[in-house]
């Protein structure tokens, strides 16, 4: 083996060469190892026969452009996840069953400067993607309850307000607060308080629909974003949450506690901002508290005509 062949076969990078008919003409050791396909089974075969899923629009567009223009091209993990479907060789296969890849393409020319082949390099970026995934999770999940945090709720609510305005779909939000939470903490201790927060998060998560976005908004306050939900539907859902929480006793250590929640409901107005919609939900919640707690109050959309 000459020195370039040695590099080709020992480099920690997948290297593949395709001819103009998209037949594989080179397949290095790294590719053999990760694909489980030995070079002798692959060389001479059309790459689209070997990997039918690979021949989507982007891949073909890139290969054709490299043959036509001799450019350097990239196929990024961010847009496509991976090019060659291969097993994730790291401990993260529960999250990413496939190896995540960044690939680059470039032309190979003969002595007459004609492009006769395209090379593809395949870089395994699964580890980086996994770190990124963990960071994204940490940035949007509340550590205690495992539901979304305030930061994520604010950014999602901003997006949902914009989306609802664009498509003309309704949007509602619920602001929920545990009644007399301070008393739970004071009489049963903070561990019980934390347990109550977790338990109620769990219950609420089961009660809301999968398209709803539930998170912990502050100490004992929760926010639930209800996309494509009218004010009336939101009130029904809020009432169901309130009722279910009130009827389920919470057992913490040897105490049995009955916990209730108050809920403020509001629907989106035409000119709503993040602050204005939250303010109305907060006003409705405050009203529910003032009227004796364990109840749902709502602030209907002012732009709706009165019945």
């Amino acid at each position: 083996m000459n020195e370039y062949q040695q590099i080709f076969n020992t480099i920690n990078l997948g290297l593949v060469v395709l001819d103009r008919e998209l037949n594989v003409t080179a397949w290095n050791r790294w590719m053999e190892l990760h694909s489980g396909m030995p070079a002798e089974k692959v060389i001479g075969q059309p790459v689209c026969d070997l990997f039918p899923a690979l021949c989507d629009n982007s891949f073909i567009r890139i290969v054709k452009s490299v043959f036509a223009f001799g450019n350097y091209a990239s196929y990024s993990q961010k847009l496509h996840k991976y090019l060659f479907p291969m097993k994730n060789p790291h401990g993260s296969s529960a999250v990413f069953p496939r190896m995540q890849q960044n690939c680059t393409f470039g032309p190979i020319r003969n002595d007459n400067k004609e492009i006769i082949a395209v090379y593809i390099s395949v870089q395994d970026v699964t580890d980086f993607v996994m770190y990124e995934h963990k960071l994204i999770q940490m940035a949007k999940i509340d550590g205690l309850t495992g539901i979304y945090n305030r930061r994520y709720l604010d950014s999602r609510l901003t997006e949902e307000i914009e989306r609802s305005r664009r498509h003309g779909n309704p949007l509602s939000i619920l602001l929920l607060d545990i009644d007399h939470f301070k008393k739970i903490n004071d009489t049963h201790g903070h561990l019980c308080g934390d347990y109550a927060l977790r338990k109620i998060s769990e219950l609420l998560q089961e009660l809301v629909r999968t398209s709803d976005i539930l998170g912990r908004y502050g100490g004992e306050e929760f926010l639930c974003i209800l996309p494509e939900t009218s004010h009336e539907q939101a009130v029904v859902l809020a009432e169901r949450c309130r009722e279910q929480i009130a009827t389920k006793p919470l057992a913490c250590e040897d105490h049995q506690a009955r916990i209730t929640i108050s809920i403020g409901v509001t629907g989106q107005h035409r000119d709503d901002t993040l602050d204005s919609i939250k303010k109305r939900a907060d006003d409705a919640l405050y009203q529910a508290k003032r009227e004796g707690r364990n109840r749902v109050c709502s602030c209907p959309a002012a732009s709706e005509p009165n019945p």
Binding site: I62, A68, F69, G70, N71, Y72, S74, Y75, K78, I136
Partner: peptide, 30 residues
Amino acid sequence: GEMALLGENYDIDVLEKETLVEVGNIIIGA
């Protein structure tokens, strides 16, 4: 078509960057 597979966890700025890199260099190459 492919974007639908990415779910919602993606930063639009990152996607813009990757798209422009991928498409831009084809245009420049041409």
